[in-house]
Design a binder for these strands. Structure first.
Lengths: 218, 218
DNA sequence: TAAATAAAAATGAACGTCCGTTTTTTATTG
DNA sequence: CAATAAAAAACGGACGTTCATTTTTATTTA
């Protein structure tokens, strides 16, 4: 038959991708066979190779597609944050990161597959220069906060935000994928509140702080 | 020949384990074949099955052995910390966690294998009730700190310590396994210092804090 | 409009290789 | 010598991929 419309072709291709993604997530890359995929995608084994040249190619295609989706979601999260260091905004970020992890935990399973089998080739970009990326996203907000004297301890605002972001992510990943089972001894809402407090307000008393500060710069 | 001494037997068994662990770490569980292992362990394929009944059995054996080693190392780390919330001790923990991750990154690769292929069956225990575990390890230190008024923001000391612990771990794992490449924009030492400051001293100015505190409890 | 055509899509058997495990054979040693 | 360790061979099955073949269908022709 003559060439199918590119729309139909794309649709079939993405149907195969969907099936493959489900299986990769459920059972890993090596444990998923091409026969599994073709059966689950209701495509003959042979026809599969009209859409993807190799098994690894479909894995890469899945990752790239998913990376775009998650990048978009993350952009959306940061768009909703005007002042990145305001406690209420940190809390909001915690909630949104939690939703993202819980709704797309499979994405991070793919990342672990990538770490194990491809030295995280495809996901590295998510972490490289992360603090700088936030500095760009939030333009001058961090220097502004510093100029206003908001940052009591003279710490880099972008680093604080990155640390908070990573902390939230890690918290929810541990809960969702690693069997954390309320590893902080708190439910998710309490954990977010508590972590926000830590990052925004700090912990030790002024007295304790000055006690440990003085010997450093007498 | 008559039965080998149990000492010799144990030695051979652990030699096989060592070889298998190296390969599992380097290339994952499914990607490592029994022939790989037997060749690398300089044991015939058939003889392998005199020591381990299945491929999965050796994986479990490796994990359990490694879990003990890491547990021991962690115990050693916490033993060196008398006052868990003192900034200098947090910093020390950061350094020790960094060493642990860098010297035994393979252990966490095994954990990711476990997450992907065994729903983290074997590693769950590392996270379950983590904050409570620290509460036990450090006995009354957290309530003492609270009673002394060390904790300015009234946050649970055990949660703070757990959060710091997780943050350090995650930081070094991202650097070592995920291609972070100084993702905070700092070298390891600076990162430890900065994170310690955040957890101990907090970030926002007193003014900012009271500003965000007052509407919560007027 | 309906039949013919040609090119692309879909198929599933077959290929060679490697898998984890079992069985058989050989070597070793108290 | 006999018991056991070690090695080798063999097993059935599953793997990713290829390919000759069949089916499908947009287009052309009548």
């Amino acid at each position: 038959m003559p060439k199918l419309s590119t729309a139909v072709l794309k649709e079939k291709k993405s149907a195969i991708e969907d099936a493959a993604r489900e299986l990769f997530i459920k059972q890993g890359f090596h444990a998923t066979s091409m026969r599994d995929i073709s059966k689950h995608a209701e495509v003959s084994l042979g026809n599969f190779y009209n859409y993807f040249p190799t098994k690894e190619a479909i894995f890469e295609s899945i990752i790239n597609g998913y990376l775009q989706i998650i990048d978009e979601k993350l952009r959306h999260i940061f768009m909703k944050i005007d002042e990145p260091l305001e406690p209420e905004n940190l809390r909001k970020m915690g909630e949104m990161v939690g939703d993202l992890v819980n709704q797309h935990s499979d994405f991070w399973l793919l990342m672990y597959i990538d770490v194990l089998e491809f030295q995280n080739q495809h996901f590295r970009k998510m972490f490289e220069g992360l603090a700088d990326k936030f500095r760009t996203i939030f333009a001058d907000k961090f220097v502004d906060a510093s100029d206003r004297g908001d940052l009591r301890t003279g710490v880099d605002g972008a680093v604080v935000f990155t640390a908070a972001y990573m902390q939230f992510f890690n918290y929810f990943l541990v809960e969702k994928l690693f069997g954390g089972n309320q590893h902080l001894g708190l439910n998710d809402g309490q954990a977010i509140d508590c972590l926000t407090k830590i990052f925004a307000y700090g912990v030790l008393s002024e007295e304790k702080i000055s006690k440990f500060k003085t010997p450093a710069s007498p």
